[in-house]
Design a protein around this nucleic acid. Structure first.
Ligand code: ATP
Length: 694
DNA sequence: TCACTGGACGTTTTT
DNA sequence: CGTCCAGTGA
C-alpha cells in the first residue's frame, strides 16, 4: 500500500487573505512532486514528518496510522473516547493538505450537528479563520446525502423537481388514515405498523418482496397499509426518511452512469459511527466507493444502539471480506475520561457475550469515584440532581459542561421542574424547533405552495388561521369537487387558494427570510397569534420571529432554493441540532441523543429494572438485553471527569406509583469504583411520609 | 363549523 | 398523572 498519495493540483485553492491567517499552507516543488507544510515561522517541513506537521503532532502513533494509509480501504475500530472522530477530522484535513481536491472528499456523519462540527474543525485545521471557500469536502449525513443526490438527479429518479420530505409525524398520519380506510384502526397500533414498514425499507426489502413472504396477520395488515402508504406518498410527491436512502440506492444501483459520476466525484469516502449503519446505507456506500477503494470507516461495536431501526454491526464484522485488503487500525487509549470511569464502563460492557473484546485504558488522572444515589422517588432523585448541579455551578463548573442522561423522554419532566425550582439553567435536547405547531404550520404553507400535490400540508393549513373550511369543505377541496359546495364554503376555499398563490409568488421572488415573514403576515397567522391573550400564543409569535431569523441563513440562495434547502434541513434536523454550539445551560437528553457527545460531568438517572434496562417491548424480538447494556456503556463514557448514577425506589409510571428495583447494571460495576451519596436529612423526612402513605 | 369535554391510553430509543 | 383526540352540543 502506497504511503504517500500522488497529489494532483497542489496549488493552494484560495489565496490567503493575510499571511498570519494561514498557518498551514500547501506548497510543492515541481521537481519531486512531494508536498510539505509551511509553518508559521516560514520553515518548510515534509508532509509526513510526524513531529513537525501539526496534523500528525496532534495524534498518537496508532491514530497517525490513519493518516499514513490514505489509499485503499481502512477500518478504525476503537472504544469510546479513543479519538475516532478526531482521527477522521485530521485525516480529511491531511488529505486536503497533501493536495487532494477538497470537493472529492466525502465524510458521512450520524447527525447534522456532527457534520457541522467536522466542517468547522477541518476548516480550522487548514485555514484558521479563512472564509469558507467554494471548494470544500462534503460533510453530511446519509439522509442529507440522499436528498442531495435525489435533487440533482430528480428526473432520472422519477421524482418531481420539488418533492416534500415527510417526517415521522407526517408518516404516522398517513398510516393512521390508511388504517381508518381499511376499517382496522381499532385492531392495530399505527406506530407498530409504521416501524414495521420503516424497518423493512431500511433492510432494503421492497413492498412486493415483503408481500410475498407475509405470513402472519400482522404482516398481512402491514402489506395492506404499506400499499396505501406508498400510494399516498406518490400522490403527494413526498418521500419519507427511509425513501431518502432507498430511492437513492435504487437510483445508483439501476443507473450505471450516475453511479460512475458519483464514484468519480467522491474519491475519498469516510463514515463515522459506522456501527450504526443499516443495510440500505451500506449498500449505497458500497456502490459509491470507486475503483480506488478509498474508504475509511470508524466505529465501535459496543456503541451499536440503533439495531431496533435496522442498524447492524455485521457490516463492520464483514468489512474485511467485503473490502479485500482492508487495513485495520485499533485505538486503545481513551483520552476522554478518568481511569475510574473507563474502568467502570469497561467492566460493565465486558458482560456482553456478543462482542469482540478490546483493550481500552486511560492515562488521564484516576479521578473521583462514580457517585451513586438511591432516591426515594423520582422527585427526590430530581432534587438530588438539581441540588448537586447547583453546587457544582457554584464551584465554578460551567453549566454547558454538565449533562443529565435518561433512558426515556418522559423522565425529563420531573428533572425540569426540579432545575427550575433551584434556578439552574437547562436545555432539553430533542424538543425540536421545527416540530413546534406554529413552525410546522408556516412551513406547511411553503410546502403546499411549492408542491401543490401535498395534501397533508393543505389539510394542515386549510383552516389555520380559521377560514371556515371544515371537514366537509376540506374533503371536497382535496377531491377537487369545489363546484359542489355552497357559496360560503366556496368563498372560503377561494380565500385559501388566494393565499397559497400569494405564498407561491413570494417564494419564487423573495429570499428565504422575507418569504417566511410574508407568509406569516399575508395568511394572517401572526395576527391571529398576536390577537390572542394566552401566554402560549405569545410564545408562538416569538418562535415565528425566531423562524424568520433562522431563515436568514438561507438568504444567500436564489429563491426558491433557500426555502427548499431550509425545508429539507427542517425535516432532517436531529435532536442534537437543538444544542447550539455555544449553548448555555445543563443539557437534558436521552442516552441515544448523547451519542458522540462529551461532557465534563454526567448524571445518568432512572437506573431501575424495567426502565434502564427497559423492559418495554418485552414480547418483541426487538428487546435486547445487550443493547441496553451498550446504551449504558455509551451513557457512562460521555463523562470526562465525574459520573453520577441514580435510581428511585418508587416512581410514577402510567399514573400508578410503582416500586422499583435498582438496575442490574449497577451490580455489574465493581463496588470499588462506586461511592454512595447520602440523602440530605431534610429532603428525606417529608418524602418518607409520602412513601409510607402509599 | 367550532369549542368544549370526557375518556382512553401511554412511555423505549430517532434519522 | 397528563395528553390527545373523538364525539357532542351550540
Ligand atoms: N491524541 C489525542 N490527544 C489529545 N486528545 C485527544 C487525542 N485523541 C482524542 N483526544 C480527545 O479525546 C476526546 C474523545 O475523542 P473523540 O470524540 O474523537 O472520540 P471517539 O472515539 O469518537 O468517541 P466516541 O466513540 O465515544 O464518540 C476528544 O475530546 C478528543 O479531542
Amino acid at each position: 500500500m502506497a504511503k504517500t498519495t500522488i497529489p494532483r493540483a497542489v496549488v493552494p485553492s484560495t489565496p490567503a487573505r493575510k499571511p498570519s491567517e494561514r498557518w498551514l499552507r500547501i506548497a510543492k516543488t515541481r521537481q519531486n512532486a512531494k508536498s510539505g507544510v509551511l509553518l508559521p515561522c516560514g520553515r518548510m517541513v515534509p508532509m509526513n514528518d510526524t513531529h513537525q506537521n501539526p496534523l500528525f503532532a496532534a495524534l498518537n502513533p496508532a491514530q497517525q496510522e490513519a493518516l499514513h494509509r490514505l489509499n485503499g480501504p481502512v477500518m478504525i475500530v476503537a472504544g469510546a473516547g479513543s479519538g475516532k472522530t478526531r482521527v477522521l477530522t485530521h485525516r480529511i484535513a491531511h488529505l486536503i493538505a497533501t493536495g487532494v481536491p477538497p470537493e472529492t472528499i466525502l465524510g458521512i456523519t450520524f447527525t447534522n450537528k456532527a457534520a457541522r462540527e467536522m466542517r468547522d474543525r477541518v476548516r480550522a485545521l487548514l485555514f484558521g479563520n479563512l472564509a469558507p471557500s467554494a471548494r470544500e469536502p462534503l460533510l453530511a449525513t446519509f439522509h442529507s446525502l440522499g436528498v442531495r443526490i435525489l435533487r440533482e438527479f430528480a428526473p432520472q429518479a422519477g421524482l418531481p423537481r420539488s418533492f416534500s420530505i415527510y417526517d415521522r409525524a407526517d408518516s404516522l398520519k398517513i398510516v393512521k388514515d390508511s388504517l381508518r380506510e381499511l376499517g382496522a384502526e381499532k385492531q392495530w397500533e399505527p406506530r407498530a405498523l409504521l416501524s414495521a414498514i420503516s424497518r423493512a425499507k431500511g433492510d432494503a426489502t421492497t413492498l412486493s418482496a415483503y408481500r410475498d413472504r407475509a405470513a402472519t396477520p400482522f404482516e398481512e395488515i402491514v402489506v395492506r397499509v404499506w400499499e396505501r402508504y406508498e400510494n399516498a406518498l406518490q400522490r403527494t410527491n413526498a418521500l419519507d426518511f427511509d425513501d431518502l436512502l432507498s430511492r437513492t440506492l435504487l437510483l445508483v444501483e439501476s443507473q450505471t452512469e450516475i453511479q460512475q459520476i458519483l464514484q468519480e466525484r467522491w474519491r475519498y469516502i469516510h463514515v463515522d459511527e459506522f456501527q450504526d449503519t443499516n443495510a440500505v446505507q451500506y449498500r449505497l456506500l458500497r456502490l459509491l466507493v470507486g475503483k480506488e477503494q478509498n474508504i475509511c470507516v470508524v466505529g465501535d461495536v459496543d456503541q451499536n444502539i440503533y439495531s431496533w431501526r435496522g442498524a447492524s454491526i455485521r457490516f463492520m464484522l464483514n468489512f474485511e471480506s467485503d473490502f479485500p485488503g482492508a487495513a485495520q487500525i485499533i485505538l486503545e487509549e481513551n483520552y476522554r475520561s478518568t481511569q475510574t470511569i473507563v474502568a467502570a464502563a469497561n467492566e460493565l460492557i465486558s458482560r456482553n457475550r456478543n462482542r469482540i473484546p478490546k483493550v481500552s485504558h486511560s492515562t488521564n488522572e484516576e479521578g473521583s469515584p462514580v457517585r451513586l444515589y438511591a432516591a426515594y422517588d423520582e422527585h427526590d432523585e430530581a432534587a438530588f440532581v438539581a441540588r448537586t448541579i447547583r453546587e457544582r455551578l457554584q464551584e465554578g463548573v460551567a453549566s454547558r459542561e454538565i449533562a443529565v442522561l435518561y433512558r426515556a423522554n418522559f423522565q425529563s419532566r420531573v428533572l425540569e421542574e426540579a432545575l427550575l425550582r433551584v434556578g439552574v439553567p437547562y436545555k432539553v435536547v430533542g424538543t425540536r424547533f421545527f416540530e413546534r405547531k406554529e413552525v410546522k404550520d408556516i412551513l406547511s404553507y411553503a410546502r403546499a405552495a411549492l408542491n401543490p400535490q401535498s395534501t397533508a400540508d393543505i389539510a394542515r393549513i386549510a383552516n389555520t388561521p380559521p377560514r371556515g373550511i371544515g371537514k366537509a369543505t376540506l374533503a371536497a377541496l382535496l377531491a377537487e369537487r369545489e363546484h359542489t359546495l355552497a357559496a360560503r364554503a366556496r368563498n372560503a376555499v377561494a380565500s385559501l387558494r388566494r393565499d397559497l398563490k400569494a405564498v407561491a409568488a413570494v417564494l419564487a421572488t423573495e429570499p428565504a427570510s422575507h418569504a417566511i415573514r410574508h407568509i406569516m403576515e399575508l395568511t394572517g397567522y401572526l395576527r391571529m397569534l398576536e390577537a390572542s391573550k394566552s401566554e402560549e400564543d405569545k410564545e408562538r409569535a416569538e418562535n415565528l420571529k425566531e423562524l424568520v431569523s433562522l431563515a436568514a441563513e438561507y438568504d444567500h440562495h436564489a429563491p426558491p432554493a433557500g426555502i427548499e434547502e431550509m425545508l429539507a434541513q427542517a425535516a432532517l434536523e436531529s435532536d442534537q441540532d437543538t444544542l447550539r454550539d455555544n449553548h448555555e445551560g445543563v443539557a437534558l437528553m436521552t442516552v441515544h441523543a448523547a451519542k458522540g457527545l462529551e461532557f465534563a460531568e454526567v448524571f445518568v438517572v432512572g437506573l431501575e429494572e424495567g426502565l434502564f434496562p427497559s423492559y418495554a417491548g418485552l414480547n418483541d424480538a426487538s428487546r435486547d438485553e445487550e443493547e441496553e447494556r451498550r446504551l449504558m456503556y455509551v451513557a457512562m463514557t460521555r463523562a470526562q471527569k465525574q459520573l453520577w448514577l441514580s435510581w428511585a425506589q418508587s416512581r410514577m409510571l402510567f399514573g400508578n406509583r410503582s416500586v422499583q428495583a435498582p438496575s442490574s447494571f449497577l451490580s455489574e460495576i465493581d463496588p470499588s469504583y462506586l461511592e454512595p451519596v447520602q440523602a440530605e436529612e431534610e429532603a428525606r423526612e417529608p418524602l418518607r411520609v409520602i412513601y409510607l402513605d402509599e
